[in-house]
Amino acid sequence: MVRIMPPDASWPEMFWHERERLKTFLGNVADELEHYGSTAVPGLSAKPIIDMMAPIPSLDDADALVSILAGAGYRKIDAGFFKRRFFRREPRGQQPAFHLHLAVCPRWPIKNELLVRDWLIQHPDIARTYEALKMDLAMAYGDDMPRYTAAKTPFLRYITNQARESRGLPMEHDWEE
């Protein structure tokens, strides 16, 4: 079910606590762990999920962490990604869920997700438009997460390319992950 929550000022702090906790499990990989997604944008309503991403040299390196991350409460999810591994830690009590993406990314830190995060922070008007879209889509597709995600994808691609253009980067056309 798609559930959008009002903004929570503690989301960034929750990320930092989780990042510190994961250093024991991820070692140096945790040093580049970034908070992205709506919970990383102050004042933005979001699904109660802390999205995190770090670069990793190869998918084999990410796969080597599966059992280690299981010890941290993360399970690997096959979400059809080609250039990353995706792990989820279920919510605990009042804490949100945590999503961990380990991405093979030679252009870190200009990863699209990070560019979008920064773009939304710098452009509150666009963040409000995105928030309104998410609320409308949650109402329309509340029980269908894949349709909700697919419906917001064109907007995210549009603002991704706005963010890229603002930094003098080429437009993104390869959306395969």
Rank of each mutant, 00 (worst) to 15 (best):
I49D: 07
R85T: 08
L44Y: 02
K47L: 03
K47W: 01
I56G: 04
A62M: 01
K76I: 10
I49Y: 05
R88C: 05
I50F: 06
P91Y: 07
L65E: 01
S67I: 00
L69Q: 08
F87A: 08
A72T: 08
P48G: 11
A54L: 11
Y74F: 15
A46R: 03
S38M: 09
F86E: 09
L33F: 04
A72H: 05
I77C: 03
F81G: 14
M52D: 12
Q94F: 09
M53D: 02
F82R: 15
A70N: 10
D63W: 08
Y74I: 01
F86R: 12
G93D: 12
I77D: 06
S45W: 05
Q94W: 05
I50N: 07
I50R: 07
G80F: 12
I56P: 05
S58T: 15
P91I: 08
E34I: 00
P42G: 03
L33K: 02
Y74N: 01
A79E: 14
P48W: 13
P55N: 10
L69G: 02
S67R: 03
I49V: 15
E90V: 02
Q94L: 06
D60P: 00
D51V: 06
A46H: 04
P48K: 15
G37E: 01
M53C: 12
Q95F: 13
I50C: 10
A54P: 09
R84H: 14
G73L: 04
P57S: 10
